[in-house]
Design a protein around this nucleic acid. Structure first.
Length: 790
DNA sequence: ATCTTACCGATTTTT
DNA sequence: TCGGTAAGAT
């Protein structure tokens, strides 16, 4: 018995030692977040302060040691000397870094008072963040982590609604409509109501409806609050829109949240069930929550109050989509006993970059006091450059990137961030011309492409026979001679009788559809029926292939023989690899499940790290990312801050926060670029430099001036693609020069001249140069003995 | 049903 | 400037 007691004591000491070691890499504040499992916690996490790490270790802590660590615990089961040796060995290996995960065996030895994994709910905004967290948890804990809910707001709501939605008057095979679908629906409604699209832009209405939903306002509630004519009309549309969604058994993105909240409000037992289940709740990017999300989280957490929210009021940049910064600012009011923990140590950027960012953000009012600091070195000064125009700006960026490349920096370590997507064009032209591989984030997204939406509409309609929108999309795609008029006959029938649109379609014979059209409809129904019959038997991939074949969709594209058709085929093939992937991992073959997954993914999720390409994107999309070298371009009044924000103090502050977010993406070097002049909407504009640029203390920057001479001779232009450019350069072992229109150059034979035209690409670039004495000469950039002058 | 022409308007965007 | 949309022509 005495031996047993000794063993217990030894076990406790060893377990505590292990505990210390596991969390040794965290700073004091992070550790506080990790170890305060019980009660409300507000974690104000500055940019790059290791909040993801804190959240992951918090979950780990909850699971292994419970809400609060207790040293004097009894072992989970009888402990042998051998067990202690195992723990000892594990500890050694952990400290050496040989192991970085917890095997089931070691979990079995360590875990006392641990929270059940099902009780943990961690919510993020983006799939990417959720995915990162999930992966890291799986690496630490293995398959047990799959029992925790680590997902986006929307994914969590889909999962809950999938089980519970019947009490709200929908069925669980509901469709999810994206913003495009919303617009199609809204346009149709506007047409029905004879609304002038100029006065009532569907986009505006969409926005208004989204705002209502984010505030949890149903049409009838919104009506009470409204007073002006425009708003009343919006609400009228909202009402019809919402009815239409319900008839289609469809939810839009905002519905996912709003209906879940409604579910919890209306069904106390259901709420109770989830409150009991999710006793430990964490929310990432809390400053970006809107009212509906706020209500969701706080309703769920109400019972046990084990709510840990992580965020940074200085990084709130989504006010325009109804994020309410007050949610984070008022957390302490909502939970007076909340522990407030500030993570202010930054592990990402150099001191200089942080100083600059701190200085800029300090111009905002109403912030939670916070100041980032770092143990990192001061680093290189911030490089500022004022370009002549947007071409010069792009040229500078490209020159610098090439220079960095020459110093061994990877393209993938460079990011160019801009305020608006429209700014990417000139830059892209230059990147292409010089042959720098790049990746543009934003633009037409994969799941928004026509061909993908088409095939998805087929699949969606098969799952949900109420989905009129999808039927409308596919009924004449590919062309089969069923026009608008026929469709509206069917749709009207469906509304009048209150039957699913598929039912209405089947009854086409009673609707005055005759002759050729009737035949076409009959054929179409047969086609759909054959798909429906294979629904159970086939995998998603097989079904997709069957649809593409038997509708003639493939054939039509193949016959077309155009580059566009080519890319559509490629996209469909890409889609098939995604279905294949799904089929491979899916437990049962459920098309509906596949569709809800697909509805919630975006392109940003595919941003692969370590890809050898410069990343070009908006400052908004850069949130949460980091790069060694960051270029901020277009730092001009009117562009950034955007002119639309000029007359609103709150919007200006949001712009400044955006600037703060953008600056703090940089790990090593930050480049701030503005142009004196820029073409915008076909007009040349003179722009003052951005106020944010003025707010950066000058002593942290150096103003860049192009050197008068480039060292290289003779000149050459680099290749057109990544492979080409690298090959040329390494063979030649020399740096490239970048020429642009209007550059002054020095030619060995003809002296000084000015470039008057640039033609061709890659190694074929031809320069036409005007020399005072010799006239215009055309030379191949690759071979001409040129030096650039400035 | 599909192509052409004239016009308008133009942040940021996850899910 | 450019691209998307809507009405008009064939």
């Amino acid at each position: 018995m005495g031996a047993g007691k000794n063993l217990t004591r030894e076990y406790q000491q060893l377990r505590e030692k292990i505990y210390q070691s596991i969390f040794a890499g965290l700073n004091k504040q992070q550790m506080e977040v990790v170890a305060t499992g019980e009660g409300p916690v507000l974690c104000l996490a500055g940019a790059g302060s290791g909040k993801t790490m804190a959240m992951i270790y918090r979950i780990l802590h909850l699971y292994l040691f419970g809400a609060e660590f207790e040293a004097a615990v009894l072992p989970p089961h009888e402990i042998s000397l051998e067990d202690l040796a195992k723990m000892q060995q594990w500890l050694q290996e952990w400290e050496k870094g040989v192991v970085s995960c917890f095997s089931p065996e070691i979990i079995n030895l360590l875990r006392v008072n641990g929270v059940s994994p099902q009780a943990i709910l961690a919510i993020t905004f983006t799939n990417k963040a959720a995915e990162e967290m999930k992966t890291r948890l799986a690496n630490l804990l293995g398959t047990i982590s799959e029992k925790m809910w680590v997902m986006t707001f929307h994914a969590a709501c889909v999962r809950i609604l999938h089980r519970e939605i019947s009490s709200l008057g929908y069925t669980s095979n509901f469709a999810i409509y994206d913003s495009q679908d919303q617009l199609v629906l809204l346009r149709a409604i506007c047409k029905e109501l004879n609304l002038d699209e100029k006065k009532f832009a569907p986009k505006k209405i969409q926005n208004a409806i989204s705002r209502y939903k984010c505030k949890l306002q149903t049409p009838s509630k919104a009506k009470i609050m409204s007073n002006d004519f425009l708003e009343k009309k919006y609400i009228e549309v909202y009402e019809i829109y919402q009815r239409r969604l319900q008839e289609n058994n469809a939810l839009d993105f905002d519905d996912l949240i709003m209906l879940t909240v409604r579910l919890f409000q209306e069904e106390p037992e259901i709420l109770e069930k989830y409150q009991e289940r999710f006793r430990y709740i964490m929310v990432d990017e809390y400053q970006d929550t809107n009212h509906a999300q706020y209500a969701l989280v706080n309703t769920l957490a109400k019972k046990y109050q084990n709510l840990c929210v992580v965020g940074d009021d200085d990084q709130s940049i989504y006010g325009f989509r109804a994020a309410d910064i007050r949610n984070i600012l008022d957390f302490e009011r909502d939970y007076p006993e909340a522990r407030v923990i500030k993570l202010e140590q930054n592990y990402r950027s150099t001191q200089l970059i942080l100083d600059a960012a701190n200085e800029v953000i300090a111009h905002n009012s109403g912030r939670k006091a916070k100041k980032l600091w770092t143990e990192n070195s001061a680093g290189e000064p911030i490089l500022c450059f004022t370009a002549i125009d947007e071409g010069d700006e792009a040229a500078f960026v490209v020159e610098k990137i090439e220079e960095l490349k020459g110093q061994g920096v990877n393209y993938g370590d460079c990011a160019v961030l801009m305020r608006t997507n429209a700014q990417s064009r000139t830059l892209e032209e230059w990147l292409i011309r010089i042959g720098i591989p790049y990746k543009l984030i934003g633009g037409v997204k994969f799941y928004e492409r026509k061909e993908i939406k088409d095939i998805l509409a087929y699949l969606k309609f098969l799952v949900n026979p109420c989905d009129a929108l999808s039927l409308k999309r596919i009924i004449n795609e590919p062309r089969r001679g069923i026009g608008e008029i026929t469709f509206s006959k069917i749709a009207n029938h469906s509304w009048e009788k209150g039957i699913p649109i598929y039912q209405a379609l089947l009854e086409y014979e009673n609707l005055g559809i005759v002759g050729k059209t009737a035949k076409a409809v009959a054929d179409f129904i047969n086609l759909l029926e054959s798909f429906r019959q294979s629904l159970e038997k086939l995998t998603v991939t097989e079904l997709t292939k069957k649809i593409l074949e038997e509708t003639g969709y493939w054939q039509q594209l193949k016959r077309e023989n155009s580059p566009e058709a080519e890319s559509r085929i490629e996209n469909l093939q890409e889609f098939l690899t995604k279905t294949l992937e799904y089929d491979h991992f899916a437990e049962e073959n459920s098309l509906g499940d596949f569709l809800s997954q697909v509805a919630l993914v975006t392109d940003l999720d595919n941003l692969q790290e370590k890809e050898e390409a410069v990343v070009v994107m908006t400052m908004h999309s850069a949130k949460g990312l980091e790069f060694p070298h960051v270029f901020l371009i277009g730092l001009e009044e009117g562009i950034f801050p955007h002119y639309r924000a000029f007359d609103d103090l709150h919007e200006l502050e949001e712009e400044r926060r955006l600037c703060y977010v953008a600056m703090t993406r940089a790990k090593e070097r930050l480049y701030l670029v503005n142009a004196r002049e820029r073409y915008l909407y076909g007009r040349k504009n003179m722009n003052q430099s951005s106020r944010f640029l003025e707010e950066v203390p000058p002593q942290l920057c150096i103003q860049y001036n192009r050197p008068g001479f480039f060292e290289t001779t003779p000149a050459y232009a680099v290749g057109n693609n990544a492979a080409g450019s690298v090959a040329v350069k390494e063979q030649a072992g020399r740096k490239g020069q970048i020429f642009m229109l209007g550059d002054k150059v020095f030619h060995q034979k003809w002296g000084e001249g000015v470039i008057v035209s640039i033609k061709g690409q890659g190694s074929e670039i031809e320069l036409a140069i005007a020399f005072p004495e010799e006239g215009i000469k055309t030379v191949l950039a690759k071979y001409a003995p040129l030096k650039k002058l400035r």
